[in-house]
Amino acid sequence: MQPIVIIGSGMAGYTLAREFRKLNTEQELVMICADDAVNYAKPTLSNALVGNKAPEQIGLGDAEKMAAQLNLRIEKHTWVKQIDAENRELHIENQEQTTIQPYSKLILAVGANPIRLAISGDASDDIHVVNSLTDYRTFRENLSKSADKRVVILGAGLIGCEFANDLQNTGHQATVIDLAPQPLGRLLPSHVAEAFKQNLEETGIHFVLGTTVEKVSKHAEQGYIVTLANGQNLVADVVLSAIGLQPNIGLAKDAEIETSRGVVTNTLMETNQADIYAIGDCAEVNGMLLPYVMPLMQQARALAKTLNGQSTSVHYPAMPVAVKTPAAPLTVLPAPLDVDVSWETEELDDGMIAKAFDSSATLRGFVLLGPTAGKQRLTLTKLVPDLIPAAI
């Protein structure tokens, strides 16, 4: 029998391999990845400074350690050039040669790439994105050289706010720019967003909202000049872009695998091509794209069983997201996009509880801001219907 092949060595790929090995120690597993295949948890990157973690301390194991631990063959620094779904083969390429890798089952765990804005200026290529440990290493190197520690962050979403909090708490001056009128625009109702923003501003973080970056230029004495669409200029030592991610769907599209925002799968994580599955940030499961850790874990457990011969649909319970902003502790359970909700808010001494109810008065989402509100997480989560019910 041909091996099961996983493309990608991020959290999705390694979590699936680990879950599968709990069920099956014998089946040959192959992992193919374009980078060095170091295993690490990407969510730790946005608060590693506060945790006093150097980039070399973030990795949980190199390719050799992971291959031994999970009994799998890892082809690192290797690119999949083509998926031949009809013949169940991959055309792969590394520095030395191009070869064919057959598979019995194929899993796309190819993640997502940072969205990049079209920004002019002679320093546009110096804008950092942090989507991998390699990216983070470069970011930290440049950060350590910055004399005045001024960091401009593009994007006031989840990652942008987490990085801002991490940087501000470690002696840097963070300024966050976003076209939206509020931080976490897609996750929070405006009244909660305003309170969240005020909490972060009290630590010294600056927000410049309702505008975008047009140009980043080098300056001999001041590092970089960041020119905004509203005419304002900011001085920065380091510029970081955190405006969101786009699932990697190019390889799938070329293989005539159905894609939309991500690689389209059913609740078995199956694509429209036989024996090809998708998992993690690239997977659009039942119309839902949820680039968070908890959905990934649910996917990995279910798919591991399916790959081992026990067909298992993924179960999505209500899965709140904890935002790593200690200056404004925040837990968010977004309401489904296709559900109209009305908000009810309870003000607390140290924050607020905002609940989203649908037309039948069912709780469909919530936002917990502050330490006291956070204690309601489990109680409220139990009241929210599953996104994808458990199979009976």
Rank of each mutant, 00 (worst) to 15 (best):
residue 275 D to G: 07
residue 255 A to N: 07
residue 276 I to Q: 05
residue 276 I to W: 02
residue 249 I to H: 04
residue 297 M to V: 15
residue 281 D to G: 08
residue 287 G to F: 12
residue 294 M to H: 10
residue 248 N to P: 06
residue 282 C to D: 02
residue 268 L to F: 15
residue 249 I to C: 13
residue 293 V to N: 00
residue 287 G to M: 14
residue 298 Q to M: 14
residue 247 P to G: 00
residue 250 G to K: 11
residue 260 S to L: 15
residue 278 A to Y: 03
residue 294 M to A: 14
residue 260 S to T: 08
residue 274 A to T: 14
residue 285 V to M: 15
residue 280 G to T: 05
residue 300 A to L: 06
residue 250 G to P: 02
residue 254 D to L: 14
residue 277 Y to E: 08
residue 292 Y to K: 06
residue 255 A to M: 10
residue 252 A to R: 00
residue 250 G to Y: 07
residue 293 V to I: 15
residue 269 M to V: 11
residue 266 N to M: 10
residue 297 M to C: 08
residue 281 D to A: 12
residue 271 T to N: 08
residue 262 G to R: 00
residue 258 E to N: 08
residue 279 I to F: 01
residue 290 L to A: 00
residue 280 G to F: 09
residue 285 V to F: 03
residue 256 E to L: 09
residue 251 L to H: 00
residue 264 V to H: 07
residue 247 P to C: 11
residue 286 N to W: 00
residue 278 A to C: 12
residue 287 G to T: 13
residue 276 I to P: 02
residue 283 A to E: 04
residue 296 L to C: 04
residue 259 T to Y: 04
residue 292 Y to Q: 10
residue 254 D to T: 13
residue 257 I to Y: 07
residue 286 N to M: 14
residue 283 A to L: 07
residue 273 Q to F: 14
residue 266 N to I: 09
residue 257 I to G: 04
residue 249 I to Q: 09
residue 305 K to Y: 07
residue 291 P to R: 08
residue 295 P to E: 09
residue 295 P to C: 13
residue 283 A to N: 11
residue 279 I to D: 00
residue 299 Q to K: 06
residue 250 G to V: 12
residue 253 K to I: 09
residue 303 L to V: 02
residue 297 M to G: 08
residue 300 A to E: 01
residue 291 P to L: 11
residue 252 A to V: 05
residue 262 G to F: 01
residue 270 E to T: 07
residue 264 V to R: 05
residue 282 C to W: 03
residue 306 T to I: 01
residue 261 R to V: 15
residue 248 N to K: 10
residue 257 I to C: 09
residue 287 G to K: 08
residue 291 P to Y: 10
residue 296 L to D: 01
residue 278 A to H: 05
residue 251 L to G: 01
residue 253 K to Y: 10
